[in-house]
Design a protein around this nucleic acid. Structure first.
Length: 436
RNA sequence: GCGGCCGUAGCUCAGGUGGUUAGAGCGUCUGGUUGUGGCCCAGAAGGUCGGGGGUUCAAGUCCCCUCGGUCGCCCCA
């Protein structure tokens, strides 16, 4: 559509993107701060990396053959001719930052960031979605895998999610996986006529992907395929065992899933996924991650073992909705100032209350008292602070409780902050005075 | 990239087989109370029925195209 035709239409958020307005946004706020606390307790520090990266970072890191890199990246050329991409995921940029700055290992970082993929949106899948994640670089210790998995699992539990399945698998390493892939490819080749249409021709290209296919045809073939676990080298076998022992020691329930093959090339050894049984939608994975011992080297850094995970904010909130947990009631104002004497009092009093640490609001545009009180009521404020002509003349304010009791008192204006703190503490029932 | 379903007020939706000024609930605003919210009552504002074309005396309603939304496939958080 041309600009002048489209110009009559109001602009809207691009396909697959969404605005998050209050009060839904306050859930986001709390989700992120809750995640920050969890990660912070475990010694992970916030890392903020650019939304744009050189395209080759993702090509080399995630893998040229992956869907995400091949078809779904938002790529752009800037005015200087640089080939850039909006990040399709969170791990590669963190690995890039590690290579660039070489912090002391183990380097443990968490992030909250949007990620972009050009795909058709559907329930739980967007072109811009948001992830919370952690990455721990510099140690091959299986206990680090356990730490990362438990962080993800405990976080879901903290939100109140009950219906989460933790699925676990090992992808082997660069020394043992290729051998398995050959065996798998042979298995699939012999049964290629039984695969689903999409994979019949592509099985040779990336045999592991077939294991992930959910069609009944592919599943049948996959289920009697040789298991990767049977082909692991001694080191990978030992690593997987120690991870399982660690999870059991921490009482974290999990299920081995030998068909769990994640979509990025960089995964080695541990891979895991958190799925919600409560989600009806096709997109039931709320988070996933694993070990990626080869990634840092692949993007030009020193050989560096690492492990991490990402959780999709939108999906985890969908899961919370489905389970009816993690409801958040946004903070209500402590006081709503009603000004019948010109508006200057509302201006001054809201500022004074806010400086004292109290949440205060007011109406604008010189509305009637009825209208201002209605707004006060709808704001959920604990009390209305009323300044009419009389209060203005006498240097007082009237405080009307909005709890339905109709109680109202008139006090000296200088006593307002102190009195409001008392009333708010009483109304909150916890004896704590805000802003004190 | 492909397929199903759906676009009527700010929101959620009614509007048999085409028929005069397109409706409701909620929300918003005003009033019933010369300075008192919620409940109630009265009233108002708000729509080129997504857009374009076609059929017809007549289209929100039927047909085509297009845009958008949504769900699914692929893939992923």
């Amino acid at each position: 559509m041309e600009d002048d035709a489209a110009g009559k239409e109001a602009p809207r958020a691009p396909v697959g993107t969404h605005d998050v307005l209050w009060p839904e946004s306050s859930r986001w706020e709390q989700l992120v701060s809750s995640f920050a606390r969890s990660a912070g307790r475990a010694g992970y520090g916030l890392v903020v990396t650019p939304l744009i990266e050189e395209v080759r970072l993702f090509r080399r890191g995630i893998g040229e053959a992956s869907e995400v890199v091949g078809k779904e990246m938002y790529e752009l050329v800037d005015r200087g001719g640089r080939q850039l991409a909006l990040r399709p995921e969170g791990t590669a940029p963190v690995a890039r930052a590690f290579v660039q700055h070489r912090p002391a290992v183990p380097w443990k970082a968490w992030y909250a960031t949007p990620a972009f993929r050009y795909e058709r949106p559907q329930a739980g899948r967007y072109r811009q979605h948001h992830q919370l994640g952690v990455e721990a670089l510099g140690s091959p210790d299986p206990d680090l895998d356990v730490e990362v998995v438990s962080l993800a699992s405990d976080f879901c539990k903290e939100l109140g999610l009950q219906e989460i399945d933790l699925r676990l698998n090992s992808m082997g390493c660069l020394s043992c996986r290729p051998g398995y892939v050959i065996v798998l490819a042979a298995h699939l080749h012999d049964r290629r006529d039984r695969l689903c249409g999409a994979h019949r021709d592509r099985a040779e290209l990336n045999p592991l992907r077939v294991l992930d296919c959910k069609t009944p045809e592919c599943r049948a073939v996959s289920l009697d395929a040789p298991a990767l676990s049977e082909y692991l080298c001694d080191e990978c076998r030992e690593h997987a065992l120690r991870v399982r022992q660690g999870l059991e020691a921490l009482g974290i329930p999990y299920a081995m899933d030998r068909l769990l093959v994640r979509g990025f090339d960089y995964y080695t050894r541990t891979t895991f996924e958190l799925r919600s049984r409560a989600l009806e939608a096709a997109q039931d994975a709320v988070g996933g991650g694993g070990r990626y011992d080869g990634l840092v080297e692949a993007i030009g850094g020193p050989p560096t073992p690492a492990v991490g995970f990402g959780i999709g904010i939108e999906r985890v909130l969908l899961a919370c909705d489905a389970e009816g947990c993690f409801g958040v009631s946004p903070p209500v104002p402590h006081a709503f100032v009603v000004d019948l004497a010109g508006g200057g009092h509302a201006r001054d009093l809201t500022a004074e209350l806010r400086r004292a640490g109290l949440r205060s609001q007011r109406a604008f545009d010189g509305k009637s008292m009825r209208s201002q009180l209605r707004s006060a009521d709808r704001s959920g404020a604990i009390a209305a602070v009323i300044v009419g002509e009389r209060e203005a003349a006498e240097g007082t304010v009237s405080i009307r409780m909005l709890d339905g009791s109709g109680t109202q008192e008139e006090i000296r204006r200088a006593a307002l902050v102190g009195r409001l703190r008392e009333l708010v503490a009483r109304a909150s029932g916890d004896g704590s005075a805000p802003g004190a």
